[in-house]
């Protein structure tokens, strides 16, 4: 407790001391072999986020509590976890947004294999990232000769705000509730990456006979998405993943795949050819 007092607030130089109170936390502790929710009572201060309280827990009561974090400013996307059952960044979840008199439950992301405590193995996502064909630079344009209009890059720029916290991947029921879909489904983050490249004004994939739309549907499981929008709901960057990336991709796929006229034409051509 003395340590907790010494640590109190980090208000330190300048500012007035912040008011403190006790919070009850239930934190999942364990590893791949098993574990459970452990209860703690920890000091919290005004203006703090859940990650501050987890850090205080670490410094005072559970020094080996594993938690992945990095920038603590909502910019790197390392500290994804679930607070009261909802996927959140620990560093962007303010204590004041949670009921003060109730126990706060913090668990690791439940879609990925757990490593230890609040840390999960997010390798699935890095694997999926490798499967998306990279940007294809246009031939005949030297570095420095790229000309793109702001309105043409704006759509892809929205998707490039992604901090890869993988909360959307974590919340998506297609893989959260169905391990067997993992091989076939890239998840919202990487379907959005395909949309980003498909909307890139200078991507030359088509010139290389690379059809990103076909790839999205056939190799990356766009059809599994039933647009229930949880990815958008949890996105800490407020990217409109469903409305601006996934649905437009579905429409682009429909352009070539589910358009009856196009289908008819193609079938006739195939018969003749």
């Amino acid at each position: 407790m003395t340590t907790a007092a010494k640590d109190s607030g980090g208000s330190g130089d300048g500012g007035p001391p912040a008011a403190g109170y006790q919070v009850r936390l239930r934190v999942w502790r364990g590893d791949a072999d098993g574990g459970g929710l452990a209860e703690f009572t920890v000091q919290a201060h005004e203006g703090e986020v859940v990650l501050d309280v987890i850090h205080r827990l670490q410094a005072t009561q559970a020094p080996d509590l594993a938690v992945r974090w990095n920038c603590k400013a909502g910019k790197c996307g390392s500290c994804g976890a679930e607070v009261n059952g909802r996927p959140r960044l620990l560093c962007m979840t303010r204590m004041s947004a949670l009921p003060r008199d109730e126990v706060i439950t913090v668990t690791p992301m439940r879609t990925f294999p757990v490593i230890r405590d609040l840390v999960t193995d997010v390798g699935f996502n890095y694997g999926k990232a490798r499967e998306v064909p990279a940007f294809v630079p246009p031939e005949g344009l030297a570095p420095g000769e790229y000309r793109m209009a702001q309105q043409d890059v704006a759509r892809s720029q929205e998707f490039r705000k992604c901090i890869e916290c993988f909360l959307c991947q974590n919340v998506c029921h297609v893989i959260r509730d169905h391990d067997d879909n993992k091989p076939a489904f890239a998840g919202p983050r990487f379907l959005m990456r395909i949309a980003e490249l498909d909307m890139h004004p200078l991507d030359a994939a088509a010139e290389q006979d690379l059809d990103r739309r076909a790839g999205a549907q056939e190799d990356h499981g766009l059809g599994y998405c039933n647009i229930t929008k949880c990815c958008t709901e949890v996105c800490p960057e407020n990217i409109h993943i469903t409305d601006n990336a996934l649905i437009p991709m579905k429409e682009r796929v429909a352009d070539r795949k589910y358009d009856p006229l196009v289908w008819l034409g193609r079938t006739i051509r195939r018969r003749r050819g």
């Binding site: 169905h178 998405c225 949880c230 709901e233």
Partner: peptide
């Protein structure tokens, strides 16, 4: 499918709109 975000759905399989 799902009833709400991060609430498990009751189905054994899910092939989405494929």
């Amino acid at each position: 499918s799902p009833p709400a975000c991060a609430v498990a759905e009751p189905h054994q399989r899910n092939t989405g709109e494929t």
